[in-house]
């Protein structure tokens, strides 16, 4: 695997809180999911990789350059980077086209004709081609999220860093988004921070799980799912000491973890099961219907 991202013994603190604690990892070509509970260090990791912040200790290397190096090094990364923050608050009074044009200029698309052509391309990619001159405040939440995604696609970057990109998208838009990501992952690197575990199974090749600032898992999706094999159960009632239970479409009770009675039979695990078993809550007592 060609390594696009390499962290070596990286620590980042915010006053007394340790956001990343001696993290060492590599991420290569393809789509990698970044999972973890709130406060696990995901946003901190993304800010280091996007060159918005520097590590207190260790080495952060992105696309062959030091992310905490000189401005020349950081600029070399930024030229090949597409970044989607968790929430994009658009400047007031702008149109979709105007916003993308501003970001395109920031990304050094200085020639007007090619810049406008690129803006058309990304608007088309997120299915907003028919709305370029509409004021952003008139766009729906899903359309705004797609517009925010469009700015990350400008320049067809080698590395896409996306923080919760599918929030607010309806199922159809999510399907389009997944197709775009799969295509991008074939010739570039996508790091996708998400709480939507169904996105992981649908588009991701690798999974990276952070918990309390440390790497809890790093590997491919099948290996991640296999960590839950033999620990997910189907029965008519919740399994004692399960960490999560819910009813499946057949109205049977699916339990993750716990001590299965003889009546329970093992179920095929999912990404969500593996995630819950890795960083999930303490055992629950009742069925979450």
């Amino acid at each position: 695997m060609n390594s696009t991202i390499r962290l070596e013994d990286v620590t980042r603190r915010y006053r007394d809180a340790v956001a990343l604690d001696h993290v060492t990892l590599t991420i290569g070509t393809g789509v990698t999911a970044l999972l973890g509970p709130n406060g696990a260090g995901k946003s901190t990791l993304l800010s280091l990789l996007s060159t918005a912040a520097a590590a207190d200790h260790g080495t952060v290397e992105v696309l062959g350059h030091r992310a905490d190096g000189t401005l020349t090094e950081r600029t070399a990364i930024r030229r090949r980077l597409g970044f989607l923050p968790q929430e994009v608050e658009f400047p007031s009074g702008m149109t979709a086209f105007g916003f993308l044009e501003y970001i395109a200029v920031l990304k050094e698309w200085n020639d007007k004709a090619t810049r406008h052509h690129e803006i058309r391309r990304v608007l088309h990619a997120v299915q907003l081609a028919d709305r370029p001159t509409i004021k952003i405040r008139k766009l729906s939440g899903g359309q705004r999220r797609r517009l925010a995604f469009a700015q990350a696609l400008i320049g067809d970057p080698d590395l896409l860093i996306l923080d919760e990109p599918t929030t607010g998208l309806d199922p159809e838009q999510r399907a389009v988004f997944r197709a775009t990501l799969s295509e991008r992952g074939r010739h570039g690197t996508v790091l996708l921070a998400t709480h939507q575990t169904e996105d992981v199974g649908a588009v991701c090749d690798q999974v990276l799980v952070l918990d309390h600032g440390r790497v809890a898992f790093s590997g491919d999706v099948p290996s991640f799912i296999d960590t839950a094999r033999g620990r997910v159960w189907i029965d008519d009632a919740p399994v004692p000491n399960a960490i999560a239970t819910w009813r499946d479409p057949n109205r049977r009770v699916r339990s993750v973890g716990g001590d299965p009675p003889p009546t329970a039979r093992p179920a095929d695990p999912s990404v969500e099961d593996a995630y819950l078993l890795l960083v999930g809550p303490t055992p629950v007592a009742e069925v979450a219907a």
Binding site: F83, E89, L106
Partner: peptide, 12 residues
Amino acid sequence: TSTAALESTSPY
């Protein structure tokens, strides 16, 4: 803030 984040992570 988010636009500032996009500015600070751009090559401009």
